[in-house]
Design a protein around this nucleic acid. Structure first.
Lengths: 190, 190
DNA sequence: CTTTAAAACAAGCGCTTGTTTGTTTTTATC
DNA sequence: GATAAAAACAAACAAGCGCTTGTTTTAAAG
């Protein structure tokens, strides 16, 4: 455990539990017990349980956005952007597997304005992917006909990775990304 | 509402609520209220709350399995099987959108033996997809090199559909399936 | 040592959870 | 219209929920 302070430790523990049992399936006492303190003591560090969920998902969202933004804005071909974007996405999942799981699986448990904030960031992220594909179509590299489905296909892969990716799989994030990109670009028919 | 009996009505209502708010996020009183009865009255029809979740996910699992089984066993090319399998999968999602959502999103809330039962059926389903791909490799239609990733790609698309598919989208399940298959087989590069 | 602030405890608040029990109402059958 | 089964009610149970409050312990700084 790094010396990031008690609050970060609590966040990490909550993140782990949320990813394992879900937000509603995790109690404040589950978290406090995993922290080695009593339930009430948690409230010296947090305001509400939902604060934990929001901070986890919000950081997750920012990680994905900050990872993709420079790629979208860079001046390379759309094909290269696609490759780099898939790499970046998988790297974020790899580096924050539990947070990514909470981000993709539990964000709908947020309420009110916080729900909308995360929803906006998700839309923003999807929009960046759409931009890459649209650019590829404009460049004539990608076929337009199925643009919508290409986007869905890519996001399906990206959004499902947290379900199966395990750090002890042997392949690096780059290798995984490159194989996916190869498949997506050229298909898997001989 | 059809005359399927009160229990089926309760299952349908629970299914809708579970898909909207999650299993742990839905209370017995939520369900009973949506049924127009008191919480205690539910227990004339069910034994436990988890019974509802199990019955929903188990039926969902069976729907996917029964839909895919005849395709895997049929005597057509692997390419045709793939096409039919994607069609079948999307049709099941289309015909049971809420149940499919619960199946994919909430099944981990099951406990003990029931968790394992659903896990087995999921493994079985994935195994059928693997069989189709392996067959395609054997026939020389698909490239082996990335078989694992092809399987992951297909299952990612299949397992993520419930997140975005809406019945009022304009396209039929067949049309959606055919476009995905075309993309997966040949990629989206010019 | 003393001071001070952070961290944890101890106890419990009001409320909700899933579920049970005994009784009453509804519905269908003869 | 009596009988019986099915369905709902009414009331509550023990347990657990998120969270608050007042006090004590811990630990670092002078």
């Amino acid at each position: 455990m790094p010396k990031k302070g008690r609050r970060e430790e609590i966040l990490a523990i909550a993140c782990r539990l949320f990813s394992q049992k879900g937000y509603h399936g995790t109690t404040i006492r589950d978290i406090s017990e995993a922290c080695g303190i009593l339930a009430g003591s948690l409230y010296a560090h947090i305001n509400t349980k939902e604060d934990l969920l929001f901070e986890i998902t919000n950081r997750g969202a920012d990680a994905f956005l900050q990872s993709l933004a420079p790629i979208v804005e860079s001046r390379v071909t759309a094909k290269q952007k696609l490759k780099q974007a898939v790499r970046a996405h998988i790297q974020v999942v790899e580096a924050n597997l539990e947070a990514a799981t909470v981000f993709f699986h539990e964000w709908k448990a947020l309420t009110g304005e916080r729900f909308e904030q995360i929803q906006e960031k998700r839309d923003q992220y999807e929009g960046m992917w759409s931009a890459i594909l649209a650019e590829g179509v404009q460049e004539g590299i990608f076929q337009l006909q199925d643009e919508k489905f290409a986007r869905l296909l890519i996001l399906s892969v990206g959004n499902w990775i947290y379900q199966w990716y395990r750090p002890d799989g042997g392949l690096s994030a780059e290798e995984i990304a490159d194989r996916f990109v190869a498949l997506m670009l050229h298909g898997f028919v001989r």
